[in-house]
Amino acid sequence: MHAIPFRRLPGRPATLLLLCLVLCAAAPVKIMALGDSLTAGYGLPHDQGFVVQLQNAIDAEKLNATVLDDGVSGDTSADALARLDWALGDDPNAAIIELGGNDGLRGLPPAEMERNIAAILDTLKARHIPVLLSGMVAPPNMGPAYSAAFHAVFTRLLARPGLITDPFFLQGVAPHETLEQADHIHPNAAGVKIIVARLMPEVRRLIARARRKMPPA
């Protein structure tokens, strides 16, 4: 029996088979999830945190990507910038940036937060690593002037060209008590599920953009 050359297979099935072969052979896209306790899954069992739930969603869609857990509870934007080179040691192809919550909780100057996050974005841009940047809002107890300055920082950061953006990491979760832990800061497992579902369209874009920049397998 003679093997049928691949080029002779009829149109659409041949295209789907070729796509499958390409995806199966390709190296996974490595996504650096750089953030604070919201990324690290503070207060949750490991399998219910953001990174694992996001990985499960990616796997369910067979997107061939691996999420690297670079979330550290308590990190400010300055802390994340200080360990960026260490995180980049894993050679990620893409990045999700979730920062600013601890800057706000500590009342740190928004201008410093902007410089730190901008430095992270500049470093990733120089390495041609596509970024999904998620925004944050200041705690209401910091007062209207601080909240306005904080909001203005993320308005500018999210407007930077070339980024994939998400306006607010906790959108749809805060301030709904049924989706938060007892501290009314961190999402519970159900809240994380909502965050992941909301972010998945942007994560798909991020993976596709990273894939285009990767060398052929």
Rank of each mutant, 00 (worst) to 15 (best):
D75A: 09
A145E: 15
R106I: 11
G107V: 10
L206Q: 08
H2M: 06
D183W: 07
A3S: 08
V51H: 08
F150S: 07
A197M: 06
A27C: 07
K193P: 02
R127C: 09
A118M: 00
F154P: 01
M214E: 02
A189D: 00
D69C: 03
V29T: 01
P45Q: 09
I194S: 00
P215G: 04
A208H: 11
L21V: 10
N102L: 12
N93Q: 12
D36I: 04
F150N: 02
G135N: 11
R115Y: 08
M1Q: 11
N93I: 01
Q55C: 06
R156G: 03
E112M: 13
L88R: 02
I194F: 05
I31E: 02
L108I: 12
H46Q: 14
G100Q: 09
G104F: 11
F150M: 13
G135D: 05
D59H: 01
L16H: 05
K125G: 15
A80R: 03
Q55M: 09
G107R: 09
D36S: 02
L19N: 04
V22R: 06
R115V: 04
L63C: 05
A111Y: 05
L133I: 10
Q48C: 01
P28S: 09
P175Y: 05
G162L: 13
L23C: 07
S37A: 14
G101H: 00
G191Q: 04
L108K: 07
A65Y: 01
D90W: 02
P28D: 06
L9K: 02
I164V: 12
A119V: 10
L18R: 15
I129F: 09
F150W: 12
L21N: 08
R7L: 07
D79K: 05
Q55I: 06
H128Q: 15
D166C: 03
A210Y: 07
R106P: 03
